[in-house]
């Protein structure tokens, strides 16, 4: 009898820890929204998102240049990271001999494990001067941030795409090779198309990581609130904006920073839903009706 009671109690405790992640999420959302919504109401959602000027001194809170900054750095990073990480994941899944794989796997783990602030520091001492010397300007720029972000999102895209490629049944490759296709034809025409949903998921999650990155970006973008004329000019991203101004913000300014957090949260949740949806699609389309 007492044993039964103990079991019930433990089950209850485990249940509580189980739902803690939901409770924490709700708590986070509640706090961010309750601090951030007042600013959105007082500024107006449209003026907040599409406002071109962010100047707390005169009470103007428009985050549009920061949205552009985030999008620019993110998409430029994706532009570089997608080809490199796809090639790398194909290499890992299809081509690399075992020795090479043994070397590359920990490498990717290593890239994922390097602290953001180290990436930022590296960007500050290597990439920013490089851009300054070769392309002019201060070197603090969209491109510097994108280069750093490219490296930072490589591990995410590579490992998820590799899983997707590996999950394609070997029977497909066999069929293609047996028809006289080269390995590359097989990869291009059979394996990659079948893995597309997984690859898209990988890219979406990589994008999420780039949008959310703060420290590495803050150290190399120059943090000027502007829509840059070229990728060699400085920008400020949404995340950096929060990190830079939280220290001294009060009142409406303080709330507006939480509103920026609301934007970030919303974007990330949408990206995650999208990634889950695409992934769910995969399961339905591959192997359906097989045998």
């Amino acid at each position: 009898m007492t044993e039964k009671k103990e079991d019930k109690f433990i089950q209850w405790v485990l249940f509580a820890t189980g739902i803690s992640s939901i409770l924490i999420i709700i708590l986070i959302i509640a706090f961010i929204f309750s601090e951030g919504l007042p600013a959105i109401f007082s500024i107006g959602l449209f003026n907040f998102i599409f406002g071109m000027i962010w100047n707390p001194d005169i009470g103007l809170y428009g985050v549009f240049p920061m949205i552009i900054g985030t999008l620019l750095t993110t998409f430029l990073a994706l532009l570089m990271a997608i080809p490199l990480s796809l090639c790398c994941s194909i290499f890992l899944a299809e081509i690399a001999p075992p020795n090479m794989r043994k070397l590359l796997k920990p490498t990717i783990q290593g890239l994922a494990g390097i602290p953001s602030v180290i990436y930022g520091f590296f960007g500050l001492v290597i990439i920013v001067p490089f851009i300054r010397i070769h392309f002019g300007g201060s070197g603090f720029s969209v491109i510097s941030a994108s280069l750093i972000l490219t490296i930072m999102i490589l591990p995410t895209i590579i490992s998820i795409s590799e899983d997707a490629l590996r999950s394609i049944p070997f029977e497909y490759s066999e069929a293609s090779l047996a028809l006289g296709a080269t390995q590359w034809q097989t990869i291009k025409n059979v394996i990659v198309p079948a893995a597309v949903p997984g690859i898209i998921t990988a890219i979406i999650l990589g994008m999420g990581r780039a949008i959310g990155e703060t420290m590495a970006v803050i150290m190399v973008t120059g943090n000027v609130v502007q829509i840059p004329g070229s990728i060699f000019e400085p920008v400020r991203t949404l995340t950096s904006n929060i990190a830079l101004e939280m220290g001294y913000a009060t009142g409406l300014h303080y709330s507006a920073l939480f509103s920026t957090g609301i934007i970030l949260l919303t974007v990330i949740v949408i990206l995650l839903l999208l990634a889950n949806y695409v992934n769910y699609k995969t399961k339905v389309s591959i192997g359906g009706g097989y045998l």
Binding site: S176, A178, P193
Partner: peptide, 14 residues
Amino acid sequence: KKVGMVFQKPNPFP
């Protein structure tokens, strides 16, 4: 190309 093959499990491409 000259020597084609049909496998045990039907394996059409998706």
